[in-house]
Design a protein around this nucleic acid. Structure first.
Lengths: 244, 244
DNA sequence: CGGAAGATTGAGAGTTCTCAATGCCTGTGG
DNA sequence: CCACAGGCATTGAGAACTCTCAATCTTCCG
């Protein structure tokens, strides 16, 4: 019972919060999910979790901290195509596709669960979980499309604002972060590589947003001073996140 | 046998070619797939097949011609997030996600199959088909990431070159197009909206590529004069398409 | 304390955009 | 069969946004 109370005292795991938004899970499902969280590895800043071309033995799931998907284009420049936070799968697709077509790297301190293919097969037996994971994968696809619109059709300031709104909404949806601030281990260069800009320009844009009283980013902490104004600036419409 | 020879004379359906690349299908599967192709609607240029916010009764599948996914950002500008060709599903995800978070529009003359939810449920009963459709959806996700890298980290010329290489490879993979040319109903404005550029700039880039002897686009026909040089220019690495 | 990574700022260059005019092609109605 | 309208393509000129290069400052960590 002590164990139980400790469990109840700590907030529910982001993965659970996320999946239960749209799928009713029963105890069998929860047990299976908790077995996914047993084999956990720690990565410290800027180390690759998986590299392009690999066919990893395990499926990886973010437990704590952040990571990013990225690709290197031919001239050596990097594009970050997703930020992953607790509850996000790194490579559920690898079961189908074989080799990774991009890499995944930890940002700051991160803990990642390794899930054996056998266990994933067990998960696939349960329709409720299959549906839940499929749903999560489709939301990721929606996020990817939203990033395309962001990079393709917004100026630098609005891109930053939009990304911040998204990360804030996603954190809240897994029971993390705070009404008006959150921790974010990215460097300005990471933001640049995610938004199709340079770190120098990101720096100027952050200053502008700070001067306009919209948000402040320093010491790995994002403080949103005026949530509504920031959303308005970014043209942020959260429907693509398919939250409840 | 006459029937047979007619079937053999006409090229196999793009959807079959696509799915059989990675999944062994049996006759039951093929029958089911052919039942998906019975209810076909025709769309003529620039008409929406599905609109953002809708929860369509049918799932849509491209049979002939092209369409695009697109979103409108707050200031009215458009971002195309995917080009769909025969064999591509428009909205398989709608079964899970509910409302559309983007719209889909026909480009030029297009024929689209409407598939009832009942039939989709039947499809979902067959693991081979489920796997095949899931695989297709994951490839779409990979394409989306490749577009992010393209828009975020390549200059205008290389973006156009990369897109052309991709469309060419995808057409070949479903048994369409030609070794060095293909039909493409997009306007220069469509290309611009897909690549995060303006139509004026697309025009200049097309001229440049033409003058350099790499490719020519006119009268809705793309002619690739030097395939290898174009791939080199674009830094095109087709692994993200997961072809065999 | 020293070194390395990251943040900040300035100045000038470059790519892409905007605005605007013109040309081309196609389908339609007289 | 021709004139015309509308959509699309093409070109020029100047403006705007973002990049590059480079120096300096700050923070973090061993």
């Amino acid at each position: 019972m002590q164990q139980r109370s400790i469990v109840e005292a700590s907030p529910p795991h982001p993965l659970l919060v996320k999946l239960e938004q749209h799928t009713k899970l029963v105890d069998v499902d929860r047990d299976l999910l908790s077995r996914m969280l047993t084999d956990i590895r720690t990565f410290d800043g800027r180390r690759d979790i998986i590299r392009v071309g690999e066919d990893p033995e395990f499926v990886h799931l973010m437990i704590e901290g952040w990571s990013c998907r990225y690709s290197i284009v031919n001239d050596g420049r990097r594009q970050i195509t997703a930020f992953l936070m607790p509850g996000d799968f790194c490579d559920a697709h690898i079961v189908m596709l074989g080799k990774m077509d991009h890499s995944i790297r930890a940002l700051g301190h991160a803990r990642v669960a390794s899930i054996s293919r056998d266990l994933m097969a067990e998960v696939a037996e349960r329709p409720s979980l299959t549906r839940a994971l499929w749903w999560a994968s489709l939301v990721d696809e929606g996020i990817s499309r939203a990033w395309l619109a962001n990079i393709g059709r917004r100026n630098a300031t609005d891109r930053v604002a939009h990304l911040v709104c998204e990360l804030h909404a996603r954190l809240l949806s897994v029971g993390m972060g705070n009404d008006d601030s959150f921790e974010m281990p990215m460097t300005q260069e990471d933001l640049a590589d995610a938004l199709g800009l340079t770190s120098v320009h990101i720096n100027r844009v952050l200053r502008l947003l700070r001067e306009r009283g919209l948000m402040t980013f320093s010491n790995r902490t994002m403080v949103i001073q005026d949530v509504e104004a920031l959303k308005r600036e970014a043209g942020f419409d959260p429907r693509y996140l398919h939250l409840n």
